[in-house]
């Protein structure tokens, strides 16, 4: 049962190790001569003004929340979709009812203007 996961267990570390090797190679090959001007943060050639911390808009958080809710919805729906072939029509309709409720939520967000990027 674990067998298919062995491949993934190797591939994912390799996906990190191979680029890490390239960066390590860069350590060996590339010059390293840091100086204050080179190291300074880029801001269109001028000196950096103020702090890096900028006030983000609350919009990001709303998008994150809506994404989270749809993500959880999908997690509920995937087993339903896998079993779909063996379900009766009324069972399929229950799943659709689930989707419609969430669609109502999306509609509410839309009407309230939460989806506008202002």
């Amino acid at each position: 049962m674990h067998e298919p996961w062995i491949f993934i267990a190797f591939l994912i570390p390799l996906g990190i190790i191979l680029p890490a090797t390239a960066i390590g190679l860069n350590r060996l090959l590339a010059p390293r001569k840091p100086n204050p001007i080179k190291q300074s943060t880029y801001e269109c050639g001028m000196e950096t003004v103020g702090d890096t911390w900028v006030q983000l808009k609350g919009q990001y958080y709303i998008f994150g929340l809506i994404f989270l809710i749809f993500d959880i919805e999908a997690v509920f729906l995937f087993p339903w979709a896998v079993a779909y072939q063996q379900l009766q029509l009324y069972m399929v309709l229950e799943g659709i009812f689930f989707i419609l409720l969430l669609a109502g939520g999306l509609l509410y967000a839309w009407r309230r203007g939460a989806l506008e990027w202002v």
Binding site: I8, G15, L18, N26, A30, K38
Partner: peptide, 30 residues
Amino acid sequence: LLTKEVLVPEGADRSVFMIAPLLVVMSVVG
């Protein structure tokens, strides 16, 4: 690119800065 200096800007979060590109590549290879 391999022979160019990798600059880490002043005040950067060094370890996170270096790990980020690895994660991005990993997610695609995965």
